[in-house]
Amino acid sequence: MTRSLSSAEDPLRPGSHSEGSPPITSIPDIERTSEPPRLHVAPRFRELLAHREVLVNLVRKELKVKYTASVLGAVWSLLNPVVFLAVFSFVVKVLGNLIPDFPVFLLSGLLAWNFLSSALQAGSRSVIDNANLVKKVAFPREILPLSAIGVALFDFVLQSAVLLLFIGVSGHGFHLPELWLYPLAIAVLIVFATAITFWVSAMNVRYRDVGHLLNLALLVWFWFTPIVYQGWLVQQKLATVTILGVDAWTLYLLNPATVIVLGFQRALYAIVVLGPGKDPILPLLSLQRQAGMLLAELGVSIVLLLLAWRSFFDRSGDFAEEL
């Protein structure tokens, strides 16, 4: 019978493991069930934790691909803010400027923005660019947008280190009560960026123009956010304007990126008014108010994250088919 060829009377060392190597110890002898059709946050989170090695490998892969065939590698990431600082320090010296320590002002907001925009742009492509993995390997698909966040975070940390060093040595110095906003602003930034990244990455699988739309939206969004201009100017201009009975400045503050960027500027740049008789630079907001806005946005972002995660999860079951 043909079957006898394949049955247990195989002459090859029965019961032996792969060629001379010892058996791998961590055989997960647990029962595993296929994914449920709906997201259950706690078990899914444990599943993601169990796959952290994949996340690490994917982030490493992205960084490697990004800096592959470049001699300096990740130094390029550092060079970006260093050149910024050098150029702006020089330009400001030559031309003079209304904003003292302009490089610090600019970079404290710009680095946060760079994190957001690069996370969104890389995140929106994360599933599509890894089609060969999605179609052939099983792993929680959330890891793909998360790896985009990881890569953006890597650059953010390097660049922030440069900025913090510059603040320390340039004489601008750290300002203590304000600095407490820094960790809070970072937390809001990461949670908010993750939520939006989940959403755009899943949408982009079905509708490829999400990517193009995103680039335009980021451009408009950038100029609606007080990164290169002073927040106080906006506050001053909008103070008397009301739209549909609502104070326009309040509406302006509904932009999540504005709250985040103002938080970073307050924490690191910290100078609201340089001296008596001079115009303010940062908007006139109390520390408590800014902390409150950040906390509120953190809450909203967490809700957004759960919604975006659920939407991503629903769609991710068919990614392998749609790509």
């Binding site: 055989i27 997960p28 002898d29 647990i30 029962e31 595993r32 069930t33 296929s34 994914e35 059709p37 060969n132 993995l133 999605v134 179609k135 052939k136 390997v137 099983a138 991710s316 079951g317 068919d318 392998a320 088919e321």
Partner: peptide, 25 residues
């Protein structure tokens, strides 16, 4: 586990390795 079924469950025990097509993963 590459596609998620719309209904039903699949249960298995232990490590599962899949080889799908060329250069999988």
């Amino acid at each position: 586990g590459i596609l998620r079924p719309n209904a039903g469950t699949i249960t298995y025990r232990g490590r599962l390795a899949a080889l799908l097509e060329l250069g999988a993963g």
